[in-house]
Design a protein around this nucleic acid. Structure first.
Lengths: 223, 223
DNA sequence: AACTTCATTCTTGTATACAAAATCATTGAC
DNA sequence: GTCAATGATTTTGTATACAAGAATGAAGTT
């Protein structure tokens, strides 16, 4: 048990919130939660602080911790910002990327290709992560890379959902190829545009997913 | 004392870090700091969590809290990202801003003008804040506005320094006018460009400030 | 003299205890 | 019957106590 308890709890709570275990606005009872994790309130409260910082909770003074399920509109907003951050990474990377890093990016594209051929969504997902992180770093702006990572992480579960959509993996792969090409050509404008669209399409796909999800919800209620 | 102790401590520590009271990499002793604030370690540790989330501290497990003074290069990086976020705000705002908000923006420009005429840097600073926050909100993307505010806040002390530079206030005012004009015309591209440059120039000015600061440091050491 | 090992000390991480504020329920007035 | 006020209870915020890991230093070996 080398890790800090508070960090494990944060990770677990993060997953629970993101997977919809709690509903929006729900108050988290410190004592009951602490008991369920078999810890005292102290590490739990530290986890609360961290979750509040990343926007998953809001702490109201002397009122408690309330889960903040980003509404549909906010998710779209987040994708919009993510698209712009990725575009910026792409623009800078097109100018600054080195040959070894370019090689690494090429490898991830190949690995993505294999994953698509085998229909392995998990493998694709992992390589996709790698691909994007490489570009963040290639921007040469470390602060930007960190911000991008932070937001990427927050949108992670929604990205993952999308790979379930028919044909999305192949489409995504094609976009990766276009991004790689722009980087190889040092074409800043193109790299920015293609990356922006690559992420924006995810926002759109997310929209589609939500619509069909809500329809099924309505269906259930209408029974 | 309606506020939470932890929040007051966070604010105070934030100021101390940002004003350079601590040096980069310095370890903050929980017990001594808690004593100096006349509180126990508990609220202090909560403050640490928050400061770590905003990047001012790094918490190493069982090692302690270390202050993270962004190096010169990182400050430039942050201005670079800030420029892009503001550009995005401007682009969206040009499309979405309403007449009442436009009026409010016009007022801040007038107030800035008066501040310049009177040579009141503090008043200018306050109105400048207002001006930028209005544009963040006018973007219509609430998440983006929050992100912009967060980064703006982090760069705050460095912005403030710049107003000391000769002629910077008048120059800044001119840029504000150009931004307002772009918004009035609904010119997305222009709003984005002018705002990007408006912030980028701050990065440049910051550069100038740091160079002269370091020169004076060297001078002192060379005595 | 330098390096390793072990014990001591110090510091962080967690649990528990206590204080203060907010919520809830009961009682009383209108 | 509804609303307000007040006391009880719950819950947060802070302090303190305790446990466990890390840093420090002394002693012993090579």
């Amino acid at each position: 048990m080398s890790e800090r308890m508070a960090d494990k709890i944060r990770a677990k709570l993060e997953e629970m919130i993101v997977t919809g275990e709690f509903s929006d606005g729900e108050r988290l009872d410190e004592i009951r939660l602490a008991d369920s994790f078999d810890v005292s309130r102290t590490p739990l409260r530290e986890a609360f602080q961290q979750l509040a910082a990343s926007g998953l909770l809001v702490l109201e003074a002397r009122r408690g911790a309330f889960v903040r399920q980003p509404a549909f509109e906010e998710m779209i907003e987040m994708f919009e910002v993510m698209a712009e951050l990725e575009a910026m990474c792409g623009r800078l990377a097109a100018r600054r990327v080195s040959e070894p890093v370019l090689d690494a990016i090429r490898e991830t594209v190949l690995a993505c290709e294999e994953a698509v051929n085998r229909g392995e969504a998990d493998a694709y997902y992992a390589e996709n992560e790698h691909f994007h992180h490489l570009i963040y770093d290639a921007s040469g702006n470390h602060f930007l890379a960190e911000e991008a990572r932070r937001l990427h992480r927050r949108l992670q579960p929604f990205r993952r959902m999308q790979l379930q959509l028919r044909g999305r993996m192949a489409q995504s792969l094609g976009e990766h190829r276009a991004i790689l090409e722009a980087l190889e050509n040092g074409d800043e404008a193109s790299a920015a545009t293609v990356l922006r669209d690559h992420v924006a399409v995810q926002g759109g796909k997310f929209n589609d997913l939500m619509v069909s999800y809500r329809r099924s919800q309505l269906h259930q209620k209408a029974r």
